[in-house]
């Protein structure tokens, strides 16, 4: 149970850390100042949530592990984030689609995590859900704006939606870690989240005049440490400084 809880904590922490890192790439490149700031704020929230989870993971690992070691010094195969969050940002529309698909999932996930039997995860969820509520609202509003916007914006987000769809299946697939912790009342039942996610996604896609892609082959493996070719590049940038200058401080 201990090993499973650690892996579960890392999965949540890595989702937040890698998405935060990806969104950070937009800093200084957003289409307008206000939205550049919005995305940087969301990235910062993700990083803050990652820190709470990495601190918890470091405590579980024990010894001289610290949140920084957990965050920065693992090899690629030891990251447990879902594949969706490591994908390239692409254009603004693609970033919005990825954010919307993930935020909506994250919102229902953390709402359910509020009743986790693990005290610490419950506390982290209480803190995180307030922030995630703002994120989910922001990305849904942007998806509607772009989908129901110009012909160009509509086409681009529809294309991104079609491209990203195959990366959403993994969000809801339960493996042995999920099952074992669900039995203890610690983990979230992803089948229940799927129902809520479907309903919200359909509602927003319809407002955005976008067509929901057909479910077909779904990618998976991120949770178990098998990643797409994109994660290596994210880690190269993220880990460069702490690996080159291990004692660096602000």
């Amino acid at each position: 149970m201990k090993a499973q809880l650690l892996e579960y904590t890392l999965r949540l922490g890595d989702n937040a850390l890698i998405l935060g890192q990806r969104l950070g790439e937009w800093c200084g490149h957003g289409p307008i100042l206000e939205q550049d700031i919005a995305l940087s704020n969301i990235a910062l929230d993700q990083l803050g949530q990652a820190r709470m989870l990495m601190q918890y993971a470091a405590e579980q690992k024990g010894g001289d592990f610290t949140e920084d070691k957990v965050a920065f010094l693992r090899p690629e195969t030891e990251y447990h984030n879902c594949l969706l969050v490591e994908l390239e940002n692409g254009d603004w529309g693609r970033t919005i689609v990825r954010q919307f698909l993930f935020d909506t999932y994250n919102y229902f996930f953390y709402s359910a995590l509020l009743s986790s039997a693990d005290n610490r995860l419950q506390e982290i969820a209480q803190k995180a859900i307030k922030e995630i509520t703002y994120h989910a609202q922001w990305s849904a509003e942007w998806l509607i704006r772009l989908g129901d916007g110009t012909e160009e914006s509509h086409q681009r987000v529809q294309r991104s939606l079609n491209d990203l769809w195959e990366w959403t299946g993994e969000l809801f697939s339960m493996d042995a870690v999920d099952e074992a912790l669900l039995a203890e009342g610690i983990a979230v039942n992803l089948a229940e989240i799927k129902v809520q996610w479907d309903q919200k996604v359909n509602e927003i896609l319809s407002l955005a005049t976008l067509k929901r892609p057909e479910d077909a082959w779904m990618q998976s493996g991120g949770k178990q440490g098998e990643h797409s070719e994109y994660l290596g590049y994210v880690l190269a940038v993220m880990q460069h400084l702490p690996r080159m200058y291990p004692e660096a401080t602000w």
């Binding site: 206000e34 939205q35 700031i37 919005a38 929230d45 703002y134 609202q137 922001w138 849904a140 509003e141």
Partner: peptide
């Protein structure tokens, strides 16, 4: 404000409530 009308906040300068939200995320989180 979730997909609804944004809150009408009072302007700290002239006290008017005829205000519009420009962005949910401002100079700090």
């Amino acid at each position: 404000v979730l997909f609804g009308e944004a809150k009408k906040v009072m302007c700290p300068r002239c006290k008017s409530r005829n205000t519009t939200m420009v962005s949910q995320f401002g100079s700090t989180a």
